[in-house]
């Protein structure tokens, strides 16, 4: 693409060559320096998880592992308590994701395909609700769940997670439905399909990849939650994030290699989810722009 340009303006090309190379060098320097900051801690997590205890607790630490062990991972596998946390995390995150996608799909469809009174202010409210302070919400959610007898239950966790997954999914899915051409729906209406039928047989199937993406985002957010699970779940229903804090950080001497091994395992599902989500990343993260 620069060929046509440089052919018509040969002098510009010769003038530009050295600055272009210099900026290429600058770009690599930036990537290497920031990359070191970004990836060295991850390297350290993995190395620590593979280091035998006696070596991990020596100072100064050796940056390159001299001896590798998988004992921390096998120890994790033998810990029944951690399996309970894992099961809780899976149950709660999956149900949160499914519930959020179903409820928000209808809401997002209404936002996207109909024009009615109250639509715009409600959209703003949903967008703003993502920014409400969780710690404050938590205080009254705790009282609410306590009064209704839900405190400590899976239901309390799922409902509290929905406070952040619902707005996220609504915004993502509105963006998805916006890309489904309205002409398809009009054609269905002309063919005599009801609005209800059009929604289920045309719009939802077309939006299926978006529904899956929104569900995965909700799953990840639920999986990662710390403060709600810490406070609203009783010990038997605690998820992995607070569970790991209780298991490892309360002790006199934290078993760092075990904790790093556990951290590695907890991160895996999230990393896998994001590999699928790469192309939805930008849209899902801004949660859509207010338009229309």
């Amino acid at each position: 693409m620069t060929v046509t340009l440089s052919a018509s303006v040969p002098t510009a090309r010769t003038r530009r060559r050295s600055p272009v190379n210099r900026s290429r060098v600058a770009a690599w320097i930036a990537v290497v320096v920031i990359g070191l900051f970004g990836l060295a801690p991850i390297y350290w997590l993995v190395v620590t998880a593979l280091t035998p205890d006696d070596r991990a607790f020596s100072f100064p630490p050796s940056l390159i592992p001299t001896e590798i062990t998988f004992e921390h991972f096998t120890r994790l596998a033998e810990n029944r308590q951690l399996f309970q946390y894992l099961a809780n995390s899976v149950i709660v995150s999956v149900i949160t994701a499914i519930l959020s996608v179903i409820v928000s799909a209808y809401m997002a469809y209404a936002f996207s395909k109909f024009r009615y009174r109250g639509r715009k202010s409600l959209m703003h409210l949903v967008l703003a609700s993502q920014l409400f302070p969780q710690a404050l919400l938590l205080v009254t959610l705790y009282a609410l769940f306590s009064a209704t007898g839900l405190l400590g239950s899976y239901t309390a966790l799922i409902l509290s997670f929905t406070t952040f997954t619902l707005p996220l999914c609504v915004w993502m899915l509105k963006g998805i439905f916006d890309t489904v051409p309205s002409t398809l729906m009009e054609a269905a209406a002309i063919d005599g399909a009801s609005r209800w039928r059009t929604l289920h047989t045309i719009a939802l199937p077309l939006a299926a990849p978006g529904l899956i993406a929104a569900g995965l985002f909700a799953f990840v957010r639920a999986w990662n939650d710390f403060v709600f699970a810490l406070t609203l779940a009783d010990p038997a229903r605690q998820t992995l994030p607070p569970g790991l804090v209780h298991t490892y950080l309360g002790e006199f001497q934290t078993a760092w290699p075990d904790l790093m091994a556990a951290s590695f395992v907890v991160s895996l599902p999230v990393i896998a989810a994001f590999m699928f989500l790469q192309r939805y990343l930008v849209g899902g993260l801004t949660a859509g722009a207010v338009k229309g």
């Binding site: 801690p41 994030p241 790991l244 804090v245 490892y248 907890v266 991160s267």
Partner: peptide, 14 residues
């Protein structure tokens, strides 16, 4: 991408 508590554990260790 990695969970917030993992970030915290890792830097606590660092």
């Amino acid at each position: 991408v990695i969970p917030g508590v993992v970030v915290s554990f890792l830097w606590l260790w660092i």
